[in-house]
Amino acid sequence: MPTWIAVLVVVALVVVTALVGWLLRRRESRPRPAAAIESDWLEPDARGEQATLVQFSTEMCARCPQVRRMLHTLVDDVDGVALAEVDLTHRADLASRLHILQTPTVFVLDATGAVRSRFAGVPRRNAVAAELGRVIGEPAHV
């Protein structure tokens, strides 16, 4: 293969990878509806009065700590919202049951404990705040 074609192929590879990265990044702040998932795996007293954020992590999750810190600041700002964390390192069964393919994954539970939506990846703070507000039924004051 001539060098110029090889260079073109490599440039195309860089461009496509960058595009994929950009799309992945954008998708992470988009909540997916998660109707009809029960939350019997969560201790009832870990739930908040208005809503609950559940973060799923593993020991090998590089980006989980930053999400945990971000969610903590969010939960501190909104009354009646609790934050729970589930370490899937020891719970492969739960990961399959809840169809969790990556960590971090964040579930938004409403006042009754039903899972309303989920974020796969590292969501932006305002995206989680907006979703929390929607689930609580009023805009979150954050």
């Binding site: 990878t17 990265g21 992945l24 593993t58 999750c61 899937l88 492969a92 990961a95 969790i100 393919l101």
Partner: peptide
């Protein structure tokens, strides 16, 4: 993806392997 976006595909893979 790791350098430019902070994604860690190897780390994502961990959950699947697990």
């Amino acid at each position: 993806l790791n350098a430019a976006f902070g994604f860690c595909l190897g780390c994502q893979l961990y959950l699947l392997l697990q």
